[in-house]
Design a protein around this nucleic acid. Structure first.
Lengths: 245, 245
DNA sequence: AAAATAGTGTCTATAAGACACTATCAT
DNA sequence: ATGATAGTGTCTTATAGACACTATTTT
């Protein structure tokens, strides 16, 4: 079928990171201004090549997460493979994209590298045309889609929160990621009924403006049952809908 | 931070295929007996290296699908990346696993290559220890998990069926992939209520033993609403459960 | 007291699961 | 007629969404 001397082609393997977080109730993604060609000066996802032939892919992703964003111990999962020929002018580069979820952080970045790192609202990234380097806008879109879907049937939302959080903190996550408004009363009930989703974190409380809320921490369960269905209606209590009757 | 002459390592990229189908109401996966080292003589997933540096990854997967299984025009999606160092004794090989779903086929294989190809019940593959080459058992497990999950909220089940099919054909898919038994009456209602899941295919029918059934074809919708929830109970009408009362 | 957020309860529509019943074929 | 599979209807229970109401804080 083919030449006996044939050997497989060698390609370059990169990891890219879609790092999502919440900043003032809006979903943001971490972008870095590229310092070198190609796409010098253009915004791009943090990432880089495998360091050597022995490095594990997830280890490389965690290394970039630490080097470029100063993040450790955050949720990290494989998002997909992006390897279309021609996506990188340097040659055949196949990138393994990862999705990372970080709790809200005060600083834009506390990392070591990456002077030009910034948190950018996802909405802006996805609405603009040809703003990001490579196929990174497409990767961001896929990452956000993944997060939206997993919020429904897994406990991923807690990855956006600090160690302890209130139920409205959690609601803000759902509202920001899904881009909808939810009824706090029904949300409260659904979260409580999802067995193992959240567990009380001591009798502590926290205040600021209204009645102090109970604190919770992530529960033991990763798959929600019943799931937090994102059904058709966005539950804007009784507004909008335009005039109808 | 690093040497100016540093260049990224070059790795070998492979594609592997988890091809699932139904054979006499059981879920099967296509395996091939390896003809060359490493793992010569061991069962493995069909797959192979990228042919050249220009070949697109999905194109390579479709090529292997055709060469090794004789399949064209079947459902194909990326499953994941398997690149742990040491998984292949030939060096650093990163494999992009794909999930393919084929309708029931009479022949074991009609392909060109692959003399030693065979359909193997998934249950056997997953229950045996260290039976498959490389990390392929793990990949099969992930592929089956993916299929199980997607059956719930997408129209993937129709990919297991021929162009036209009956509702019990579809039910067999769910029962085989999930490994449960479902009530035909409730299944009928749920499938019909999932808007756009299936559409009638002419006034044609088909018979064999009982009353002829209506024929349907895959509908336009890819995401099911409402989903086909695989809830806790397996709905074995009124059997088993062991003696209890 | 007023404003604001936290948390509970109640009502209604919808969907899931259990299962009786009717329909249409081959033999 | 009988057996087998297809398809419909009905009942009960659980859950989603709408929303009234109570609780606990700050100002």
């Amino acid at each position: 079928m083919h030449d006996d001397r044939w050997t497989p082609p060698r390609i370059m393997l990169a990891v890219d990171l879609v790092i999502l977080t919440l900043r003032d109730a809006r979903l943001h993604v971490l972008l870095i201004e590229r310092g070198v060609a190609p796409y010098q000066g253009t915004l791009a996802l943090p990432g880089g090549f495998l360091r050597d032939e022995e490095e594990d892919i997830e280890a490389a992703a965690r290394r970039e997460l630490s080097e470029e964003a100063g993040l450790v111990d955050v949720h990290l999962e494989t998002l997909g493979v992006y390897g279309r020929p021609g996506r990188d002018p340097r040659g055949r580069v196949v990138s393994v994209a990862h999705l990372a979820i970080a709790p809200s952080l005060p600083e834009p970045i506390a990392g070591t590298d990456a002077a030009g790192a910034c948190w950018m609202p996802v909405q802006e990234v996805l609405s603009t045309e040809a703003e990001l380097a490579f196929d990174h806008q497409h990767i961001v879109r896929d990452g956000v889609e993944r997060a939206r879907g997993k919020l429904e049937y897994t406990a991923l939302a807690t990855a956006f929160c600090d160690e302890t959080f209130t139920i409205s903190d959690l609601q803000q996550v759902y509202e920001a990621v899904w881009g909808v408004q939810l009824d706090p009363r029904n949300f409260y009930r659904k979260v409580q009924n999802a067995h193992g989703f959240i567990t009380p974190a001591g009798p502590m409380r926290r205040a600021e403006k209204g009645r102090p809320a109970r604190l919770f921490k992530a529960g033991p369960v990763r798959v929600l049952n019943p799931p937090m269905v994102r059904s058709a209606q966005a539950t804007l209590p009784h507004s909008a809908k335009a005039s109808r009757s």
